[in-house]
Design a protein around this nucleic acid. Structure first.
Length: 315
DNA sequence: CTCCAGGTATTTT
DNA sequence: AAAATACATGGA
């Protein structure tokens, strides 16, 4: 029997290759698997696991269901998921116009053309992941995340590979702080993650509830009232999970480095200059942050230089 | 050895 | 109100 096969149209300024490039960057992310022209991802739909393979088919995104069943409702959930993940609903042409006006960012519309803000539709993941990554370097953060996901997440086995799904808050709510600490979470982070999971259990927070709060400041406050979530994580989650447009993760180390690289600020503590800069991009702050993060990734040439010789030979 | 990583809560000035 | 500190670990 043939796989379920969905076609999803995309609008202007969408490049699947740029999105794939971002997903693949230089990190070992355990939650998707990128190949030359497609990405595979497992997710739960209504408690049942499915495995998607996404690729480009002419002008459409093509989504194949490699594993799992799809009725009409499942298909609609998958369409929504993919649209959220790749921010397909956005029209970013106005953002490109603003970039083009800026002396040191004018190269971006061409260099990163069609890159969309890659989301994290699961709100629990969008909050738990930045807690894991707080104040540690990213390669280490991804290692910790992998241990966490492999222990508490579910997986789909397909063609000899396990595809993992981020743990549910139901599972994490019952995790032991000591077990997380053994996985090299700090004791505080272990406590925050479990507390966060329990806040989801109790209904104190949910994606629907958060999305229903009418103003931005109140949404931020709803998040920062949870222990372990500061203004940085709140903005990160609103940007990545609710696809909000005006989120600035204040104090973000990578963001400040990117602003220094582009000579937009000359000292990291100059929050005045940071705010002034973002004012010119009102309504596009999230995209601007995302593109600045993108600018931090090593170029293709640098990546090759970093690749150990043995790996090149084995290719 | 020191400093800093896509920070936050807590304690101390 | 602002500044210092602990936290886990690893790479520069």
């Amino acid at each position: 029997m043939a796989h379920t096969d969905l076609q999803i149209p995309v609008n202007n300024n969408f490049s699947f290759d740029e999105c794939l490039w971002f997903l693949n960057r230089n990190f070992d992310d355990c939650l998707h698997r990128v190949s030359a022209d497609s990405v595979r991802k497992a997710l739960l739909i209504d408690q049942s696991p499915v495995l998607l393979e996404i690729s480009m088919n002419g002008q459409n995104l093509r989504v194949q269901l490699l594993k799992g069943k799809a009725n009409e409702q499942t298909k609609s959930v998958i369409r929504q998921y993919v649209a959220d993940w790749f921010d397909l609903a956005a029209d970013i042409s106005a953002f490109y116009t603003l970039l083009a006006r800026h002396k040191s960012l004018a190269y971006m519309p061409e260099a990163f053309k069609g890159l969309r803000l890659i989301g994290i539709p699961d709100l629990f993941e969008a909050l738990a992941w930045p807690i894991i990554g707080q104040q540690i370097n990213l390669p280490f953060a991804y290692r910790v995340k992998r241990r966490f996901v492999e222990k508490y997440g579910t997986s789909i086995f397909y063609e000899n590979v396990f595809y993992y799904i981020f743990p549910s808050f139901e599972t994490v709510a019952h995790a032991a702080q000591e077990d997380l600490h053994q996985m090299q979470f700090s004791r505080k982070k272990a406590e925050y993650i479990i507390g966060l999971a329990r806040a989801f259990i109790s209904g104190e927070i949910s994606k629907q509830k958060l999305a229903g709060i009418p103003d931005f400041i109140s949404r931020q406050k709803a998040l920062t009232s949870i222990r372990g979530i500061g203004i940085w994580t709140a903005n990160y989650a609103l940007m990545k999970s609710l696809n909000e447009r005006s989120c600035i993760p204040y104090g973000d180390a990578g963001l400040l480095n990117a602003l220094m690289n582009h000579k937009i600020i000359s000292k990291k503590k100059d929050s005045e200059a940071v705010n002034k800069f973002f004012k010119k991009f009102a309504g596009w702050e999230s995209y601007l942050v995302f593109y600045l993060w993108r600018s931090l990734a090593p170029t293709e040439k640098e990546r090759l230089m970093q690749t150990p010789a043995t790996e090149i030979i084995s290719l």
